[in-house]
Amino acid sequence: MKIQGKAWVFGDDIDTDAIIPARYLNTHDERILAEHCMEDADPDFSRKINNGDIIIAGKNFGCGSSREHAPIAIKACGVSCVIAESFARIFYRNAFNMGLPILESPEAAREVKSGDILEIDLSSGKIHNKTSGKTYQASPIPAFMRELVQAGGLIPYIKSKMEESFND
């Protein structure tokens, strides 16, 4: 699966309050969450980005709260992938469960500039920066996580388990 989009670069320790401030968590409506995505890090983010664009960030992206509204907001506002030096663990787990592709690549996180056009091959983890010409290899997604992704996320995985138990 290939993704292409423009990069939007953020710093280290982007927390879930920056991704979707708690003042908007009195709803789980995707459209409302999307409008406020990244608002406290870049107030105009949701208006500036195009469908398929990519978030680049430093270390510990998604630290803080367990709110699944964070990957929901990112996905719903049109972001196709997040590449970071590292991810906070609950965010990492939630992103996979929601089907938001995320890749860890410290080199890409350091070198990609806002506005660069990236092409990402999710199955191989290869990130090609079409603007600079450089290519990066992201850490491979662990086998177990790949199984979850292949099943279509956690819920289809659970559904298939439920069908198995009904058939027993």
């Binding site: 367990s66 709110r67 699944e68 990957p71 609950i90 787990r93 939630n94 469960n97 929601m98 177990f144 996320g153 956690l154 819920i155 659970i158 388990k161 439920m162």
Partner: peptide, 20 residues
């Protein structure tokens, strides 16, 4: 440990959760 809503839904159904 803290998890997201999807993990909670899965645990409410199955009584199990995956961990590393």
């Amino acid at each position: 440990t803290g998890v997201g809503s999807t993990d909670l839904a899965a645990a409410m159904i199955t009584g199990k959760v995956w961990f590393r």
